[in-house]
Amino acid sequence: MSSQNTLYKNLNQYQLVELAQKGDLKALEELLRNEQKNIFATFSYLSNKREDVFDLTQEAMLKVAKNLKNLKEPKHFKSWLNKIVTNLFYDELRKCSRRPDTLSIDDDNDTCGAHSIVNSIPDTKCKPNEKCISLELEEIIRAEISNLPGQFKIAIVLRELQGLSYEEIADITKSSIGTVKSRISRARSKLQDGLKSYI
């Protein structure tokens, strides 16, 4: 299978973006494969509706694939990707409920119908000496974050999960750096408060 191609596996994000922008679909596929867990996790913390997370993830990936050629600086990929994710989430907030048929890549109604479109990823269990938290705690943290007011959870997720700078977050959320600073600080206090008995 094409995913076994080690050449692409050894390329970094910047190189993959550059190749993908030149029309290299295998580079694009590898890039999407590398980013999907990240996108999935981001939506998991932003959206209160668990059932929407898969759709949102695929929608974001499709947007990335379609619009990558418009990205001017490959090194700004991460920030650009998060802008797409955040904007999709804003759309989601505006909509009251999702239409069930917005996008369904899971369906076989496309040109690649013959083989399974959605492959499964092998389980990555916690290694014995790795620091791990329980499933329960992860769910509690996810609930605490996704229940924060919209702007607060966007700020804390972009910072803690995506590692973006205050400047990048300010740009994505169209707010000032001071606002971002205070949102992140307040989000942390709220979360620390809510998680006091668990951590």
């Binding site: 094409s2 995913s3 679909l25 694009l28 596929e29 590898e30 999407l32 494969r33 999907q36 867990k37 990240n38 999935f40 996790a41 998991s44 913390y45 898969f54 993830t57 695929q58 990936m61 499709l62 694939a65 890549i105 496309d110 040109t111 690649c112 479109i117 959605v118 492959n119 499964s120 990823i121 389980d123 990555t124 791990c132 938290i133 499933l135 992860e138 996810r142």
Partner: peptide
């Protein structure tokens, strides 16, 4: 942990699309 909750690989499907 949340990242590893994604057990599906969508990338091939997106490329097909």
């Amino acid at each position: 942990k949340t990242k590893n909750n994604l057990k599906k690989d969508f990338s091939g499907g997106i490329i097909c699309k």
